[in-house]
Design a protein around this nucleic acid. Structure first.
Lengths: 213, 213, 213, 213
DNA sequence: AATGAATGAGCTTTCATTCAT
DNA sequence: GATGAATGAAAGCTCATTCAT
C-alpha cells in the first residue's frame, strides 16, 4: 500500500519541524513512521530523495495556484492576482525554507538534490517561469508596462516571497494569514508602482528614464 | 596564544563558506588552521561554541559593512545609487548566506542566533533601516515617488540582494562582479519602473497602454 | 515451471560473470530473470544453494568443452595446434574464472566446490590429462622433444591460459579473439622454443647444453 | 605507536585465513586486534587499503628475492636461479591467492584496489618486469636463447607460480617445501628445454622453427 | 505457483571528544 | 600550551529472507 509511503513522508516532515535536518536520522524516521528502516529505501532511493519528496508535497499548493494562473489573465486587477498568488506561495515557502536552508548547508546533499531536480525536471525555476508566462500574458493585454521584463519581475516577486518566509522563520514569527496578507500587499504595491516619480518632476539633479526607446 | 584562537575561527569560517556546516569536521578545521585537533578544545568548550563564535564574529563584520553603505543622497541618479549600494550589500550577503543557512539546520544554533541578533543589535533590520532612511531622503528631494513606503522598498531591495546571493551560492556561481552588476541592474530597473502601465488610458476593461506621459 | 528455475540459474551466472559474487543480490537476480524475488525461494532453499547450483552447472559445461578439445595429432604444426587449442581453452577459462574466484571468497563455497570436483569428476585435472595425452602422442611421432614430460608441459600451457584469462578479467579487457590469439602465440612460442640457448657455445660460465640423449 | 598498525594488519591476515574475505568485517578486525573500530581508519583510508597492505606484506619475501636477482646474473645456472626465485615467489603467491581471488569477486573492491596500486606504483606488473630485466641480462650473457622475449618468458614463469598456488589452495594441499620445489623444478625444466625437438629431425610432417631469422 | 512489500540485523565509514605525552 | 593517537557511538545504507495476498 501507499499508506506506508505517506506515513514515512509525514513522519519525516514532523521530525524536520521539531528537530531540524541536522538531527534527522533514518532510524528515527523509521521509528516515527512505525516501519522498518529498510522500508524507507524501498520507497525512496536515498535520504535526499525522501527529503525532496517532502519539499515537493509542501509546494503542492503553490504549484496549484501557479497552474491556475493562466485562467486569471485579464481578470481582476494585476495587483489582486499577484497578492493572491504570493500569499499561497509564501505559505509553501514558509514551510520549506528551513529544509531548503539546511540542504544548503550540506554540499553533498545539495549536489544530490540538484541531480534529482534535474532528473524530474522540477524545481523553483519552473515555478518562476510559470509566473513569468502569466506576466507576459498580462503584458500583452496591456495590463503590465511594456518595458518590464517578465522573467525579472517574476523572479523579484518570488525572491520576496522566499525571503519574507525566511525572515519570519528566523524571527520565529507565526505565519498569521492576515499579517502575511498585509505584508505581501505592501511589497506588491511597491513593485507595482515602482520607485520612480510618476510625473516628469522639476528636479535639479539627473533623473534616468527607465525606457530607453 | 590568541593568534591560534583567531586562526581557528578564521579557518572555520573559510570552511563554512566553502564546504558548508554539515560536513565541517574538527579534523578539517585543525588542518586548515594548522594546529592539532586537541588544541581547539583548549580555546572552545566544544564544536557548538566554536560555531557560535564564528557566527557572532561574522555577523558583527557584516553589520559594520552594512551600516557603512555608500549612500549618496541627491547625487547621481537613484538607480545608479541603488545599483552601487546593492552591489556592496550583495557581496556581504554572498559571504554570510552559507552561515545563515547553516544556522537553519540546527535548532539550537538558530535559537542562539536569534539571541545574538537581539543582544548585539545586529541583523538585517538595522541595515534595512539605513537603506530606508536613505530612500526617505531621496523621496523628500522628489527623486522617488511619493506613494512609495521607504521601508517596504528598502526591504524589497534587500531581499532581492540576499536571495540572489543565495541562488548564486546554490548554483555554485562565483560572485563575478560584472555579472552581479548586470543582474542587480535588471532587478533595480524593474523595481524603479514598476509593473503598472504608465498612462491612465481610456479603455473599457481594466488595462492600460504603457507609454510616456 | 522448470523454465523459471533455469531462468534464475542463467541470470545468476550472467551476473556472476559481469558483476562478481560480492555484490550479487537476490533482487538483481530476480530482476535479471524477470521473476519476483520470492519465487527464487520456491526453487532454492537459500542463496547458497542457488550459487551451488550455478557453480555445478557451469563446471559441468566447462567439462564438456574441455574434454572435446580439437586435438589433431600429427596434423599441421605442433605450435599451430597448441595455439588453436589454447584459444578454445582460454575462452572457457575466461567464462569460468569469475566463478572460480568467487568461490575463493567463501570458505563454505570452497569446500562445496571441492566436493563437486571429486564427486562429478570435473575440474582442471581431467582436461589437463587430455592435453597431456595429445602431447604424448605428438612426442611419439617425434614432433615434440623426447625429454619433455607431457603432463608438465600440458599443465604449463593450461596454467598460462587460465592466468591470462584471469588477467583479462581483472583488467576488464574484453576477450577480443585477435588479441587473445596473438598473446597466446607469444606464450606458445616461448614454451615451444624454451629458454636454453640452442647452440653448445664455448662459454666459461656454467650452462647446460641441450641435446638429445 | 606503530604497534597498533601492525596489530591490525596481523589480525586482518588471521581472519582472512580462517574466515575468508566474504566474512571479514571491520568490527571483527577491530575486536581481533583489540583496538577501536575507528582506529583502523586512522591508519588506513578504507578497507581496501588495509587489505592491500596485507597483500603487500605477504609479498615481502618475493619482492626481496626479485630485488636481489640482479646479483645472480651469470652465477649458478639459469635453471637453478629460476627454481630458487619461483620457490620463494610461490610461497608468497600461496598466501595471497585466496585474498586476490576474493578481491576479484568484488568489482567495487577490485576497482579501488587498482586505484591504490596505480597510486603507489606497485603491483604484479612491477614484479614481472623485475624478472624480465633479469632474464634480459642473462640473455646478453648468452645464457638464454636470443630468440626469447624476456617479458613473455617472465610472465609465463610468474603465471605458473600463481596458478600452482591457486591449485594447491583449491585442493587444500599444504605448501610442503619439498613437494613445491619438485613441482617447480619440473615446470622450470619444461620451460627451459622447450617442446621443440632439439635436432633437425627427419620428419615427414611440417615442423616450424621458432626462429625466423 | 507467484508476487513484492516489509523486516531488521549488520555493513562500512564518520567524527566529536578525550587523554597520555 | 600543544599534540595526534585512540575511542566508540552513531550515521546512511544493503540485503537475505519472510509472508500475506
Amino acid at each position: 500500500m501507499n499508506e506506508n509511503r505517506q506515513n514515512i513522508i509525514c513522519a519525516t516532515e514532523r521530525l524536520l519541524q521539531t528537530h531540524g535536518l541536522a538531527r534527522l536520522t533514518m532510524r528515527e524516521i523509521a521509528r516515527e513512521a512505525k516501519v522498518a528502516e529498510g522500508l524507507i529505501y524501498h520507497h525512496f532511493k536515498d535520504k535526499a530523495e525522501l527529503i525532496h519528496e517532502v519539499v515537493e508535497q509542501r509546494m503542492h499548493d503553490a504549484k496549484n495556484v501557479l497552474q491556475n494562473l493562466p485562467l486569471q489573465v485579464g481578470l481582476r486587477t494585476l495587483s489582486e492576482n499577484l497578492e493572491e498568488v504570493l500569499s499561497v506561495v509564501y505559505r509553501s515557502h514558509y514551510e520549506i525554507v528551513p529544509i531548503v536552508c539546511s540542504v544548503f548547508a550540506d554540499h553533498q546533499l545539495r549536489a544530490r538534490m540538484r541531480e534529482i531536480m534535474k532528473e524530474r525536471e522540477v524545481g523553483p525555476q519552473h515555478a518562476i517561469d510559470g509566473l513569468a508566462v502569466y506576466l507576459a500574458a498580462e503584458q500583452r493585454l496591456g495590463r503590465m508596462a511594456e518595458t518590464v521584463i517578465p522573467q525579472a519581475a517574476a523572479k523579484c516577486l518570488w525572491m520576496i516571497s522566499i525571503q519574507t518566509a525566511m525572515d519570519d522563520q528566523l524571527m520565529e514569527q507565526k505565519p498569521d494569514a492576515a499579517r502575511i496578507r498585509q505584508e505581501i500587499r505592501q511589497y506588491v504595491q511597491t513593485i507595482m508602482a515602482g520607485l520612480e516619480p510618476r510625473l516628469p518632476a522639476k528636479q535639479k539633479t539627473t533623473f534616468k528614464k527607465s525606457q530607453k526607446s
